[in-house]
Design a protein around this nucleic acid. Sequence first.
DNA 1: TTAGTGACTGTAG
DNA 2: GCTACAGCCACTA
Length: 109
Amino acid sequence: MEETGFFKKVYELARQIPFGRVCTYGIIAKNIGSPQAARMVGWAMNKSSHEKEFVPAHRVVNRKGLLTGKNHFGNTNTMKEMLESEGIEIIDNQIQRFEELLWFPEMND
DNA sequence: TTAGTGACTGTAG
DNA sequence: GCTACAGCCACTA
């Protein structure tokens, strides 16, 4: 099964997220061209585990910086562990200094 | 084919 | 600050 244009763009953007940085579903969706389709970004992240290439889905959170997708990593602690291993501090499922760690595709870095 | 659902977000009250 | 509604695209039954 091949990715549609939408999913493909989501994956490409997600893979551009630098180490130790995070992004939101809305930002990704907006860069794709459908800011209101942020739900699909989450869906794409879910499917990303099916992808052969690694997709840093753990670096994608909702606009509040909450790890809303942790349940889809198998273990609810996996997402947090991965982020912490990148130097990101998390308290109560929320990323600390979220605004500082937030990365935008337009930064391209 | 149709209907329901989903890791969300912005706007309005 | 909160709740409620609509919109977006793809997938599954």
